[in-house]
Amino acid sequence: MQVYFLKLVVDESVIPIVSDELLNKSYTFNNYVLHNLEKTTECDPEKKNCFCGEGFEWSKAACSEKKCCGNGTCESTKFTCMSETTVTLTGSLALTSEAFHGCLDDTETDDFKKCNKNLTTTMKSFYSQLFGFHSLKITKYKTGSVIVDFAVIVVSDVALTELEQTSRDLTVKLNASLNLETRGELRLELLVIEI
């Protein structure tokens, strides 16, 4: 389930009306369902500053580029606040199939572009099933079979069991091994069995 951010510019006087009428509702159109609409960032275009709503904080890009960190005011209208429960996954997949050798070619070749596109599409088809999926980016290819370094951002807390199953399914599909690191809020759901 892909997360999208949109910028809605309204007069300050209608913010309460827009908040009451637009947020916390679901909308369906053309086979798409919009739900969980939230106001993450509020800006004053005249002062050219913004602040994060409750439960949100500045993205890593805002923190590194403009020193807008945490949920304080930022002197820029370029960035969007992200959920405080954002989870970042970084990992390496070791692929044994010769079908992925094209990913080791020069980035300008057709073989590389085709391999990179197919692998990205396959990986997204798995990780995009996580609620709050924001993005997946392959960051590097290395030799030793074909090793793929990647990052996934999920702007919601993630159930550990769901992440484990998604990652297991991906490794089975690609006949690969996986090392995965997480940063952020993971939910561990335990089953208690009484004896």
Rank of each mutant, 00 (worst) to 15 (best):
K124R: 15
K47Y: 08
G55I: 01
L119H: 09
E84N: 07
F150K: 11
G91I: 09
K140W: 04
M82P: 00
K113C: 04
N31E: 05
Y141L: 09
L191T: 12
N24K: 11
G55S: 05
L188P: 06
N31S: 10
L186A: 07
E98C: 07
K114S: 14
M1W: 01
K47R: 15
E162T: 12
E65V: 12
H35T: 12
C74T: 02
H101D: 08
K60A: 06
K60E: 11
T96S: 13
D157S: 12
C103H: 05
N30E: 07
L6A: 13
D106L: 06
N116L: 01
F112I: 01
N118F: 05
S156I: 00
V33G: 07
F5E: 08
N175M: 07
F79P: 04
F100N: 12
L178D: 12
T88F: 14
E46T: 14
T41H: 04
D11K: 12
T85I: 00
A94M: 11
I138E: 02
T109C: 05
K67T: 03
E164R: 14
L170S: 03
K67V: 00
K78T: 10
D44A: 09
M123R: 13
L190E: 10
Q129H: 08
W58E: 03
V33E: 10
T109D: 09
T107N: 08
F126I: 03
S156C: 00
L95C: 13
S19G: 09
F29W: 04
S64R: 10
G72W: 00
I147W: 04
Y141K: 12
V192K: 10
D157C: 04
S125E: 06
D149V: 02
A61V: 15
S59N: 09
L130M: 05
R168S: 14
D110R: 13
E98H: 12
C74R: 08
L188N: 14
F100E: 11
E42K: 11
L160D: 05
D20E: 13
Y141I: 03
V155Y: 08
H134S: 10
G53W: 00
C63W: 00
K114A: 14
N179D: 11
E75Y: 15
V10K: 07
L22D: 05
V152A: 00
H101M: 08
K137L: 06
T143C: 02
D110M: 06
M82V: 10
L34Q: 09
T109K: 13
S92L: 03
P16W: 01
K39T: 04
N36D: 15
S145K: 15
S64V: 05
D157F: 07
E185Y: 03
S177L: 08
